[in-house]
Write a protein that binds this DNA or RNA. Sequence first.
DNA 1: TATACTGTGTATATATAATATATACAGTTA
DNA 2: TAACTGTATATATTATATATACACAGTATA
Lengths: 127, 127
Amino acid sequence: MLIVISYTNPEPIFRQIMEQIKIAIASGDLKEEEKLPSIREMAQELKVSVITVKRAYTDLETEGWLVTRPGLGSFVARVSRSDLKEEKRNEIKKVLLDIVDTAAQYGITAEEVAGLLASIENERKGS
Amino acid sequence: MLIVISYTNPEPIFRQIMEQIKIAIASGDLKEEEKLPSIREMAQELKVSVITVKRAYTDLETEGWLVTRPGLGSFVARVSRSDLKEEKRNEIKKVLLDIVDTAAQYGITAEEVAGLLASIENERKGS
DNA sequence: TATACTGTGTATATATAATATATACAGTTA
DNA sequence: TAACTGTATATATTATATATACACAGTATA
């Protein structure tokens, strides 16, 4: 599993790890019931403390994406793939809602926000 | 000037203050050259430390929205209103770009994101 | 079958940086 | 000098990250 952490990224390391594991699950790169690298393995690969990786795994378990068994390892939880995608959709919707509200306070209309989004898609197609 | 801070909001207090001052400037509620409440006044109103308000004012000055004169007070900088709106537009575009990228990693298309945004607007009109 | 080995996760104590505070200091004007 | 203004210093609390010592699970082997 390829995980890359950035020290310039203000996001804490354990969250960067969490996010990339979620993406691995959502993309099918990590399958249900599959064993993840041990916290020591991953800590060594990322040149990061074991505790930091543990924090990422523990939080992912709390959110229901992993199951950890002491002495055995951590495993991808059941039925997490489509759930993860749905969770992300809701998360995105919440952020969009916040954007529209904030924009309004600055006198930027919802139509204008939609226009910005459309311009991003067009620029993407162009390249 | 009405500012409301929330302790459940994970955003630090000084950033909540900054954001609401920016909105007051963008909306014209605070005009160019106008004097802001003294840090002590605002600290007392918000039941918050003077240092926290100072931090907000100092950062706003660094970003160019305020000018502070020791012994006199803090004042809205010149030509900040339209600049602020433009800055916000750029900020929003950056966030939208990030959303589209992240969504793609979860197998959510840009069209789907646009759809979510459209649904928000529709729900708003409905209410 | 007992036990030692090697893998796994866990708990405790510590360091550093960001946020928020209280209190003492200094500039401006009347 | 009085009554405003912002500023500087030292301290507390919380989040993030770490090192090190501990405990659990499976397996090889004496």
